[in-house]
């Protein structure tokens, strides 16, 4: 089976500090892999290396699907409204506004409704709560229906109900063949994952 993402002996150093050491793993189509680890263990560095924000110091990363990346920080435009952020990222993904269900506007409506923040569509992001900002952060990562979702602490700030909605949606996507790589400092329900790895002092092990 061709893997969606493969990391082969990946190492990453910042100066003399070695953050990732010989990390290897892969995720297949429709699989969900989780990576846990303490704060500062290198989880976010690993994800940034996977998505291309960082280059590995050694080893290689092979990605064979469109990536949807949800960073840990809210990397959105806070002076723009929720709708304008959708428009901006839709333009980046090359999505057309188009009529009916094919355009990004239909996708926006779906995601707003799915994550329960339709009423905030025309509100500037700076006026949103942390949880609602995270809903937007996550929605922008799935807007273009990527084959591989790389999610860094995707449910931080969610209330319990939204957390459950997130997992329902993730299960649907997984059933539709999408792959996941989820990073968290703890994974509440490991049964949802096909594989769970632990990153400790830069070394990745099966948990």
């Amino acid at each position: 089976m061709v893997k969606v993402v493969e990391a082969r002996n990946v190492a990453k150093s910042f100066g003399r500090r070695r953050v990732l050491k010989d990390v290897s793993f892969s995720v297949g189509p429709g699989e969900m892999a989780g990576i846990v680890g303490e704060n500062g263990s290198g989880k976010s560095t690993l994800l940034k290396t996977i998505v291309g924000l960082l280059s590995p110091s050694a080893g290689e990363v092979i990605v064979r699907e469109k990536i949807g990346y949800c960073p840990q920080e809210m990397l959105v435009f806070d002076t723009l409204t929720v709708n304008e952020n959708f428009a901006y990222f839709a333009a980046a993904y090359g999505l057309r506004s188009g009529p009916g269900e094919n355009g990004w506007r239909a996708r926006e409506r779906f995601l707003l409704s799915r994550f329960g923040f339709s009423s905030y569509r025309d509100v500037p992001v700076s006026n949103l709560s942390g949880g609602t900002k995270q809903k937007l952060n996550l929605s922008l990562a799935v807007l273009h229906k990527p084959g591989l979702l790389v999610l860094d602490e995707p449910y931080s700030g969610f209330d319990w109900e939204t957390y459950l909605h997130f997992w329902d949606y993730a299960a649907e996507l997984k059933a539709a063949g999408r792959s996941f790589l989820v990073v968290s400092h703890f994974l509440h329900d490991r049964s949802k994952f096909d594989a769970v790895y632990e990153l400790r002092e830069g070394v990745l092990r099966c948990a």
Binding site: V51, G52, L53, I67, Y69, P71, E73, L75, V76, F77, D78, Y88, F89, A91, A92, Y93, G94, H144
Partner: peptide, 14 residues
């Protein structure tokens, strides 16, 4: 301003 969000846009296709 928003340098990191701009970089995310580049990751998305810009």
């Amino acid at each position: 301003k928003h340098a990191d969000a701009n970089r995310r846009l580049i990751l998305c296709g810009y």
